[in-house]
C-alpha cells in the first residue's frame, strides 16, 4: 500500500476544524444559550446545570482513556502470547472468544457488570475494558497470523532472536491491523461510556439522560453533540495514526 498523504491531509484539515469547535462548545456556555434561546423559547434552563462541560468531558476522557489504555495493553499482550509457539494451544479458544464476545451487545455487557460490581465508575470501567479488549485481541491475532511465513523465515535466517523478530518484524508489519482494532475498540468505548451515565459513571451521557428524563431537548442536544464530536475526533486521530503507520507496508 502506498503512503496515503491525501487521506492524512484530509484528516488534519478535519481536525483543524473539529478541535476548535469542540473546545468552543465545551468552554462557552453562552454559545449554547444564544443558540437554544430562540429554538426552545419555553425552556427555563438552557444549559445543563449539574456539572460543567469541561468536567464532563474530563470524566468521559478519563473513563475511555483508562479502559481503552488497559484494553490495548492487555489485548495486544494476549494476542502476542497466543501467537507464540508455546501459547498456540490457546489460540483457537482465544480467537473464538474474541469473535463471539463481539457479538455481545455493549449495552448488555454494561448491564451485566452491575449485578457483579454494582453502580458507578468501577462497573463501567470493567465493562468498557472487557468489551474493548475483544476487537484488539481479535485484530492482533489476525494481524500476526496474516504475516507471510517467508518474511519470518528470512528474519530468523538472518540471525534475529525471537524477540528481535517480534519487535522489529512482526509487530511493525501487523501494526496496521492492530491499530485498526484499537480504533474500533476506542470509538465503541467512547459511545458505550455515554451509556455509563445510566449506571452513575458520569461523563457526557449525564446531560443526555437528564434531558430524556426531564424532557429538556437542550440538555439532550448538548450532551449528544459533544459526545458525537468527541467520538468523531477520536476516530479521526486514530485513523490518522493508522494511516501513518501504513507507510511502506
Amino acid at each position: 500500500m502506498v503512503f496515503d498523504n491525501a487521506a492524512k491531509r484530509r484528516a488534519l484539515k478535519a481536525l483543524l476544524l473539529l478541535l476548535p469547535l469542540f473546545a468552543l462548545l465545551t468552554l462557552s456556555t453562552s454559545l449554547w444559550e444564544s443558540a437554544f434561546g430562540p429554538l426552545f423559547p419555553r425552556l427555563e434552563q438552557l444549559v445543563y446545570p449539574l456539572a460543567s462541560f469541561p468536567l464532563l468531558v474530563g470524566e468521559h476522557l478519563l473513563l475511555v482513556g483508562l479502559s481503552s489504555g488497559a484494553a490495548i495493553l492487555i489485548g495486544i499482550t494476549l494476542g502476542i502470547l497466543v501467537t507464540r509457539p508455546w501459547g498456540r494451544d490457546l489460540l483457537p479458544a482465544a480467537s473464538s472468544l474474541a469473535s463471539m464476545g463481539q457479538t455481545f451487545p455493549p449495552v448488555a455487557v454494561l448491564a451485566l457488570a452491575v449485578p457483579v460490581v454494582g453502580f458507578g465508575f468501577a462497573p463501567t470501567f470493567i465493562a468498557l475494558f472487557l468489551y474493548g479488549l475483544l476487537p484488539i485481541l481479535a485484530n492482533t491475532i489476525s494481524g500476526m497470523e496474516s504475516l507471510d511465513d517467508g518474511i519470518l523465515e528470512a528474519a530468523r535466517g538472518m540471525g534475529m532472536t525471537r524477540s528481535q523478530c517480534l519487535f522489529r518484524v512482526e509487530l511493525p508489519l501487523a501494526a496496521p491491523v492492530i491499530l485498526a482494532g484499537v480504533r474500533i475498540s476506542t470509538v465503541i468505548n467512547t459511545g458505550t461510556a455515554a451509556l455509563g451515565a445510566t449506571i452513575g459513571a458520569g461523563g457526557l451521557g449525564k446531560p443526555i439522560i437528564a434531558g430524556l428524563i426531564g424532557d429538556n431537548p437542550a440538555y439532550i442536544l448538548e450532551g449528544a453533540i459533544l459526545v458525537a464530536l468527541l467520538a468523531i475526533i477520536i476516530d479521526t486521530i486514530l485513523g490518522m495514526v493508522s494511516v501513518a503507520r501504513v507507510e511502506g507496508v
Partner: peptide, 21 residues
C-alpha cells in the same frame, strides 16, 4: 456513513428526538 456510524448510539437516538419534534 462512517461518520454516522461513529456517533454514539445514545447521542444519535436522542438527537433525533428534538429533530423529529
Amino acid at each position: 456513513l462512517n461518520v454516522l456510524q461513529t456517533i454514539p448510539s445514545l447521542a444519535l437516538f436522542s438527537i433525533l428526538i428534538p429533530l423529529i419534534a
